[in-house]
């Protein structure tokens, strides 16, 4: 059933999609800047343009596939489980300065390939989030995509810095993803049939429970991981004397 602009539901879902994009699109933006940084300035621009166009095309393709898959019974449950995982991962801090397994591109072709492959892998979380929050509304899916693309293209490190400065956004983002995960689990055709008599209360309970589980599990794991990091990870160290200009 298509939601319309006049329903409160539509706007709630749109806000959810914007929130999901903010917390999940930052990494995609950074990879574009990073993959091209070893290239000479002139080639860098073309690598960024080529990589971005490829990434956007892949993202649209993925969205179409995921939205279709989500209509199949039981696959909403799979989507829900994946979202729980994505949400909890969001709350757990990242390790150190990277153990890159893939070599950074030193030619324009390899830089473009890196951008496209990385974006394909990293946009999956985003695409699943959008598809889940959009329910079955095609308008919302398209709007969600339209909002995520400029973040990927122009966002650079802005989103990551925002999340770093205000940790509450990360917790809020995790809770939001947990809410959506619980929400779509309850909307799976396989589940919907036997919770039907208790609607809509079970639906809200599932969503709120999802948000609660993510926040509790995520903060607990984050604390545990943080407790293990004791040392400071220095990347550069310089002495500035007085004689220097």
């Amino acid at each position: 059933m298509e939601m319309t602009f006049f329903e409160g539901q539509f706007w709630t879902a749109l806000l959810q999609i914007i929130g999901i994009n903010i917390v999940l699109s930052g990494d995609n933006a950074v990879v574009i800047a990073l993959a091209a940084r070893n290239l000479p300035a002139k080639q860098r621009r073309w690598a960024v343009i080529g990589g971005t166009v490829g990434a956007v095309v892949m993202r649209i393709g993925f969205t179409v596939i995921v939205v279709y898959l989500m209509t199949i019974p039981y696959l909403k449950l799979v989507g829900s489980a994946l979202l729980f995982w994505i949400a909890i991962k969001l709350l757990v801090p990242e390790g150190g300065g990277g153990e890159g397994k893939v070599k950074a591109g030193s030619s324009i072709g390899s830089a473009i390939t890196t951008i496209i492959i990385a974006d394909a892998v990293m946009s999956l979380d985003n695409v699943i989030g959008i598809a889940a929050a959009a329910k079955d509304s095609l308008t919302l899916v398209i709007l969600g995509l339209a909002i995520s693309i400029p973040i990927v293209v122009f966002g650079s490190t802005l989103m990551l810095k925002l999340l770093d400065r205000y940790p509450i956004l990360v917790v809020g983002g995790g809770a939001l993803l947990g809410w959506v995960a619980g929400d779509i689990a309850a909307a799976d055709p396989a589940i919907e049939a036997w919770i039907e008599p208790y609607q809509p209360i079970v639906h809200y309970l599932a969503a709120a429970g999802g948000a609660g589980i993510v926040v509790l599990a995520g903060t607990w794991l984050a604390r545990r991981k943080e407790a293990r990091q004791k040392k400071v990870d220095i990347v550069a160290s310089e002495h500035h004397g007085v004689s220097g200009s």
């Binding site: 930052g26 390790g95 300065g97 990277g98 893939v102 890196t114």
Partner: peptide
């Protein structure tokens, strides 16, 4: 720290 997804690729 950048997300692991990023550091894996670059």
């Amino acid at each position: 720290a950048l997300p692991e997804a990023v550091t894996t690729f670059v």
